[in-house]
Design a protein around this nucleic acid. Sequence first.
DNA 1: ATCTGTGAAGCACTTCACAGCG
DNA 2: CGCTGTGAAGTGCTTCACAGAT
Lengths: 209, 209
Amino acid sequence: MEIPPVVIDRLPLYARALAALESRGREVVSSQELGQQLNVTPAQIRKDLSYFGRFGKQGRGYNVRKLLDELRRILGLNRQWKMALVGAGRLGRAILGYEGFAPQGFRIVEAFDSDRGTVGFTIAGLTIKDTADLEGVLSGSPVDIGIVAVPAEMAQDVIDALVRCGVRAILNYAPIAAHVPRGVNIKRIDPVLALQGMTYYLKNSAVGK
Amino acid sequence: MEIPPVVIDRLPLYARALAALESRGREVVSSQELGQQLNVTPAQIRKDLSYFGRFGKQGRGYNVRKLLDELRRILGLNRQWKMALVGAGRLGRAILGYEGFAPQGFRIVEAFDSDRGTVGFTIAGLTIKDTADLEGVLSGSPVDIGIVAVPAEMAQDVIDALVRCGVRAILNYAPIAAHVPRGVNIKRIDPVLALQGMTYYLKNSAVGK
DNA sequence: ATCTGTGAAGCACTTCACAGCG
DNA sequence: CGCTGTGAAGTGCTTCACAGAT
């Protein structure tokens, strides 16, 4: 069956909430309660889950542990995922130093930069390699996911190179609308776009100056 | 008229592409060409713009400069927006140091942290104030937008405080599904959720180990 | 001849509402 | 009786297709 992409995007949200419930010792939760926590309607949660199976018990709700396991299996969160970072400037270094990836199974195993002054340095335990060698390095030891943190002008070239290395998921921090072939997934992290989408609603009540 | 939220989210994308075209001296662009650059159908662009007016010339296309001005006016991008950052740890400091906000009119004018060792320090020209004083400071000199970069446990409290100070747009870097009253806009920046939404599609072709 | 602006049709996602199970 | 799972109905967004302007 073809699962709607929006559904896939909500599952990690459910998994996160369930993990929090589990760590607080909760054994059972209803779609109602989960929905309240996440600002999602109970019907939506039930429908989303129904694409993958029947995980609840009527009259009771969902076993927290079991549903969490199922979601992890569905999403592939019970694996380690290898990532390559391209771009080790300000932003790239912040990403390298980010402690939120590892606990979720996402590990940066290669980092590249094209600046002579940066290549060769070790940051957060990783030696920065030359972006020019990206294809050589990654064809020898492939990664699952690429993280792009280079300036806009270089981003498309870097993405093309990653795709040639077989990378089929890309997290793009560069402010461009990148082109990727079918079968390659790309998501944008773009705080400026997010802000610009909110100012529309603020327009008539700016704080001034 | 009530404009679909998805439309609002696309306008900044259009504005960015137009700004790039303008800087390259382009005077006119068709919905076709713009769509190709952005991976959006030409019909979608035309329909989106039609919510706000008739900006094109039949047979020719859109005047780049004029359309860009219109979009900036619609989105409120021709203003300066004042922002307060809460949380000056690793992530918060990276945000403070990010050079991408200022050129787009977004200025961080206050920064808060609750750690004794951080309060009082000056980072990127801003003196970090105590989060406990947030409401006092912001009620005296309000901001338009709040940026939340505190640990998950504190995020909801911080968001509540920001809302009490009249903030109606929040950029949330904390990994929680926050609750805000109607009329307050909140957007999440969450690389882990983005990654977890992609692994689903990778599941059957992991690179191993 | 070309490209916009837009009703109408089509599609995708969400919500309803209830049968059925525990 | 409570809560899930799910067809069916409803909503909102996207795409079509073409009249009309240049």
